[in-house]
Structures are given as structure tokens and as C-alpha cells.
Write a protein that binds this DNA or RNA. Structure first.
Lengths: 233, 233
DNA sequence: ACCTGAACACCGTTCAAGT
DNA sequence: ACCTGAACACCGTTCAAGT
């Protein structure tokens, strides 16, 4: 057989192209496909290896560990965030970019959860950071406040995605919410008067309304809070 | 032997008390011990079963699944949160109770992460909610704003614990932070001018300073943002 | 009703051995 | 240098069988 002596090129273009060469990008690609089709719970070393027709151990040449892999997947997802357009009121554009970021994570709450533990640092994340900092500057927010404020804004968008996003698009979290509503309405009015008084109001509004309100609270708060005071404590 | 005919009490006070009767509370207790000694990563059905000298399957009589178990553990931890005292300025007391809540979760970031996905509803969590609602009312914040605001405040405290807490008290996250600082300082000033300009300022301040600033931003924002506007959109 | 052992269907990571 | 199979040390959950 001459197969062994053939130059290396053909190996990547056989009649059965099932086995492309392993690369870091290829692994992340396979991970994204599995994420979309089976959810983050299945984005495991073993599952990806199976998709790439190899063994889990082989992936460790290109990926340090599962955390590293997930971080790559996250940054790829962040490529879908719409960065702020050139014109329009800065506050609206800021809300838009944060809403877009939240919407991307909303589809993958488990990914959002992860992004809070491992601080993202990929190119797409940096682009997002840059865009928000630009808008805050445009809004006249002092650099010192913007430096801390961007963190606050991104964290809020992330936590919203984690809390209200649904991993499995099939089963809505309606059950979850009505169970919570039931518990709140069954609360002992003697022991928890404020909870009893507010009742269903604690869960009122759509997720969208609450998110927009939260963004407004944050931006207003940032505009009215002087950071220099806190650094001198 | 008469053992079988003895009343049920003695079984819990043998000479080798290694095997206490299984109860939901006992399981949560064992889980808390393991959490304190080995971290949340080891708070598994199998590990707890081993501690209680039984098999994992036996726990399912008292605990629906791992999520249920972790929710119980979380509420037990929340018993350590210091509720607001009776007197003092409401804003300070509000900051105090949220700081106490954050500090408890800070010791167990993985637990905090979980609490964002599964909304807590234990007695201790309700007590915390109640306390905060009382302070917001004291501060003259309208019920409609307080209902949404309490969520914002608790989420902020939770996300702070997740982002800055350390699971393993031994290895500080100093490495993690300096790695991030390195990446930020190496950023391409042409592509990311704002990030480059702010530089180290993005990571400035202690966690405590940033948390207190964030609380102030939120409270100020809540005081200045009218929720009714958002519900009419 | 409660408890158990065994089984099923998975994980991440390492490592010696091959090419 | 890259890839592999096998192994190690784990998981959650179910279920038939016992008491």
C-alpha cells in the first residue's frame, strides 16, 4: 500500500471526510454545534471527542481543560453581540448593546453562570467592554466612575441572563415562576408582613420591563454617585 | 435477643453511635459539615451517603435530587446573615445587611452561583427579603419600586460573591487578577483605545470599596427611577 | 415505609505506548 | 509533536429486592 508514503495533504481530503485535522478552532466549532443542538450539559470533553471521531485525551493537546474550552465557546458566542451604532442618544445605545449582550447569554444561562466565575478576556469580550466604555465617556461619565460602572452594567446583564434565561427552550420557566408565586402568596403575614403586603407585586412585570428598569436604575445611579468619595474611606 | 422488641429510642443511642437515623435534617447537617471541610465540589450524594454510613440511593427518600439538597444547604447558610438592627440610618442598615449576606455567600461562591439559578425560598431567605423590604419602606421608597429593587440589591450582592469569592480559601485569586491585569495592559491601544486609556483603573479599588460603591449606585438609582414609567411602555 | 446493592449511563484527566 | 486506549477516580439516579 502506498497510503503511508503519500504526502500529508490528501489525508485531509479523503472520500470520507469524517475526520478533519484536530485544531483548537475545530474543537471550539464542534463545541458550538453541540451547544446549539444538545445544550451546555453535553459540551464535555468526551462528547466533543466523539463528534470529532477521536478520544477525549486527544483534545488536551489544544485545550488546557474544560474551563478553557468553555471560555473559548463563550467568546465565540459574544461575537453575536451587536455593538453600539454610531448615532443616537448614548443612553439608548447603551441600553441596546447591553440588551443584545443579555439576549445572547439568555440563550445559554449555564454559559452566563460560568462567565461570572472565569472572567472573560477574549477578543469579542474586549470589544464589548470597549464599546460600553465609549458610550459612558460620551455620556460625560468620569473615567473613574466608568471604570467601575462598566463592571456593574455587565454584571447586571449577566445575572439577568442567569436568573431568567432558560437552558432548554422547550420547557419554559412558567412552572418555576408559578411555584414561586404560590409560595409567596402562602407566606405567613404575621411573620413576613412586607412580603405579604407586596405579594404578587414582587414578581410583577415582564423580564424585559424589569431589565430595562434595572438598566435605568444603574445608569442613573452611576450618574449620581461619585466614586472618589468611596476611595477615600 | 430482645433487640428487635425494644422501643425505638435505643437505636439512636448505641455504644457505637456511628449510624444515626436518616432524616432530612441529618442529611443537610452532614452536607454542611462536608461543605465546610471539603468544599461544595464534594457535597455529592455519594459523599454524603458515605459520611452517613449508607448508600447514595438511601438519601432519595428524604431529598428529591441534588438541586433540592443544595437549596437546603443554602438556606441553612443564610441563617448566618445578620438581619438589620432596630435603629440607625436606614441606608446604612441596608448596606450592612446586604454586606452580611454577601459575606456569607463569599465563602461559598459555587453556592452563590447556584442560588441564581434556583430561586431560594427557604425561611431564612424570606427573612432576609422581609428585612430589606422593611428598610426600603423606611427609606420612603414606594412599594412598586421596592418590589423590583429588592431583587436588584440581592442580585448585586450575589453576583459580587460569585465573581470575587474564593472557593478554596487557600489559594487567593491574586494570580487570577494579576493575569487579568497583564492582559489588560497588553491590549492593543489602536483597537481598544478606551480600555488602554483606563488600564489598571478598570481593576482598581478593593472588593469592599467596589461593593459599597455599587450598593450606593443601586440605592441612589432606585431613589431616582420611577418604575411606573416602565410598566406603561 | 424505608433501606440497600448493583447497575446504568455518564464525567475529567493522566499516562504509557505508539506513530 | 501528536494521537491513542486504557485506566483511575469519580458523578446522579433508578430499580428490584430485601426488611
Amino acid at each position: 500500500m502506498t497510503l503511508n508514503t503519500l504526502p500529508k495533504v490528501p489525508s485531509s481530503r479523503r472520500e470520507r471526510p469524517a475526520k478533519p485535522a484536530l485544531t483548537r478552532a475545530g474543537i471550539v466549532d464542534a463545541a458550538l454545534t453541540i451547544l446549539a443542538e444538545e445544550g451546555l450539559g453535553r459540551v464535555t470533553m468526551r462528547r466533543i471527542a466523539t463528534a470529532l471521531d477521536t478520544g477525549a485525551a486527544s483534545l488536551y493537546v489544544y485545550v488546557r481543560n474544560t474551563e478553557d474550552l468553555h471560555a473559548q465557546v463563550l467568546d465565540a458566542l459574544l461575537g453575536g453581540v451587536e455593538l453600539p451604532p454610531e448615532d443616537g442618544p448614548w443612553r439608548e445605545r447603551l441600553a441596546d448593546v447591553l440588551t443584545s449582550y443579555m439576549a445572547v447569554l439568555f440563550q445559554h444561562p449555564a454559559m452566563a453562570r460560568m462567565s461570572m466565575s472565569t472572567h472573560p478576556s477574549g477578543a469579542n469580550y474586549l470589544g464589548l467592554l470597549e464599546g460600553i466604555l465609549g458610550l459612558l465617556r460620551e455620556g460625560g461619565i468620569p473615567d473613574t466612575d466608568a471604570a467601575w460602572g462598566v463592571d456593574l452594567l455587565l454584571s447586571f446583564a449577566t445575572v439577568t441572563a442567569v436568573e431568567h434565561g432558560h437552558e432548554d427552550p422547550l420547557e419554559a420557566d412558567a412552572d418555576d415562576l408559578s411555584a414561586l408565586a404560590k409560595q409567596l402568596s402562602a407566606v405567613d403575614a404575621g411573620a413576613f408582613p412586607h412580603i405579604a403586603r407586596l405579594g404578587a407585586d414582587l414578581l410583577s412585570g415582564t423580564g424585559e420591563q424589569r431589565f430595562q428598569w434595572g438598566l435605568d436604575v444603574l445608569i442613573t445611579g452611576i450618574l449620581h454617585t461619585d466614586r472618589t468619595f468611596f476611595q477615600e474611606i
